[in-house]
């Protein structure tokens, strides 16, 4: 009994030693280059600092202003949450389906993978500008194509009901990463599982439901968490294409942070908004993480 306890603690000790040995590089980075900036920005959020970072302590005034007076603050959170709710589920479904199709012993797999990855490689400022033209109400490509069917398309990015949806579509286009990760996850499933299923005569559909999906849950979980974190920080496309318009319908929280910090010179208030966003993301990912054991399947 005593001996067993002793050996347990030896394993624990070894695990602890190994754990810190392996995470050391990251730990160093985290403590020096992440914790300090985060604390700094937290303290800033309680000041009225301008862009030179100097300002007086004003308690919770920034937070009170954000929650009681700044209408764009709520608008930004509303838009961001709408975007997350639309983008994340769609991105998961599409990337999983494409990843799965690509795993089905397709010919020219390399070519397909390159094609689906292409948007991710090219998605920079240049392509964002191209998308702007595609969505243009009068001269854009989409409305040109629609005109063949006798449909007069809306003024996509200029219509407050469609603008955010356009940005969702743009980002769904560049799913290369997620598809690749899904594919890697699906291909990592040991062939033995399928072999035994085939012996049992399970259909493709059944294999998908009972083997591929459950065994891909760690990958899906990964894409879910990352998708949520990234989607909450949506910035580039609305910043370049709509500047938050029309009538604040595409203004996002990250954009608000950026504008306050670097355009309006309100560093303190920008930090306050950023920390609100941080807390929201923390809570949501925290909830997902605590429920993960119910649906994420780890083989150990």
């Amino acid at each position: 009994m005593n001996k067993k306890k002793k050996s347990m603690s030896a394993i624990e000790k070894r695990n602890t030693r190994n754990f810190y040995f392996y995470i050391f590089p990251w730990l160093l980075f985290f403590i020096v280059l992440t914790v300090y900036p985060m604390i700094k920005s937290l303290t800033l959020s309680f000041t009225d600092s301008s862009f030179d970072g100097k300002g007086a302590f004003i308690g919770f005034e920034n937070f009170i202003y954000a929650f009681t007076q700044d209408t764009r603050f709520f608008q930004a959170f509303k838009n961001t949450i709408c975007y997350v709710l639309a983008y994340v589920p769609l991105s998961l479904v599409i990337s999983f389906l494409l990843g799965w199709l690509l795993s089905r012993h397709i010919k020219f797999l390399g070519l397909w993978r390159t094609i689906f990855y292409l948007p991710y490689i090219t998605s920079g400022v240049a392509v964002t500008i191209l998308w702007g033209w595609i969505f243009n109400g009068s001269y854009g490509l989409i409305n040109y194509v629609l005109s063949f069917f006798g449909i007069t398309g809306p003024n996509w990015l200029g219509d407050k009901h469609f603008a955010l949806a356009c940005i969702v579509v743009m980002n769904l286009w560049a799913l290369g990463n997620q598809i690749l990760i899904m594919l890697a996850g699906i291909q990592d499933i040991p062939a033995s599982y399928y072999e035994s299923a085939q012996i049992d005569g399970a259909s493709t559909w059944k294999q998908l439901i009972s083997i591929t999906i459950p065994l891909s849950t760690p990958t899906i979980y990964f894409n879910l968490v990352i998708g949520i974190i990234n989607a909450f920080q949506l910035f580039n496309q609305p910043y370049i294409l709509t500047q938050g318009g029309p009538v604040n319908s595409t203004v996002t929280v990250s954009m608000l942070v950026f504008q306050n910090a670097f355009e309006y010179g309100k560093m303190g208030y920008a930090s306050c908004i950023a920390w609100c966003l941080f807390v929201v993301i923390m809570i949501i990912t925290g909830v997902i993480q605590t429920t993960q054991h119910k649906w994420v399947f780890y083989d150990d």
């Binding site: 909450f232 920080q233 990250s254 560093m267 920008a270 950023a274 966003l277």
Partner: peptide, 21 residues
């Protein structure tokens, strides 16, 4: 948890303190 949290804070506000370091 710390690891995950580092992804969640918008980089724009940590930019200047990080630059300072």
């Amino acid at each position: 948890t710390c690891l995950m949290a580092t992804m969640m804070l918008p980089g724009q506000v940590t930019l200047i303190p990080q630059y300072l370091l």
